[in-house]
């Protein structure tokens, strides 16, 4: 069953994700980050890792631990 707070999770990650990815596209298109270099690719991965970290951390509490 979907709880109201589950919708909050979706709301934050959809809208926050739009801001995050719009930012990422903006910096890659403006060449603020050179995604063709090794260092640029590493930083891109780190950025996605940060997003994934929060997604998993909050997802863990929202969908797993809250049901224990």
């Amino acid at each position: 069953m979907v709880r109201p707070s589950d919708l909050s999770f979706l709301y934050q990650y959809i809208l926050g994700g739009i801001v995050f990815f719009a930012g990422l596209v903006c910096i890659v298109k403006s060449r603020a980050l050179d995604h063709k270099s090794n260092s640029g690719r590493r930083w891109l991965l780190i950025s996605l890792g940060v997003l994934l970290f929060y997604l998993l951390l909050q997802g863990l509490f929202q969908f797993v631990l809250s049901k224990l």
């Binding site: 809208l15 926050g16 994700g17 801001v19 995050f20 930012g23 990422l24 903006c26 910096i27 403006s30 603020a32 980050l33 930083w43 950025s47 940060v50 997003l51 929060y54």
Partner: peptide, 10 residues
């Protein structure tokens, strides 16, 4: 976290 990329690289 939504501001992470803009902050670091912009």
């Amino acid at each position: 976290w939504p501001w992470f990329a803009l902050l670091l690289f912009g």
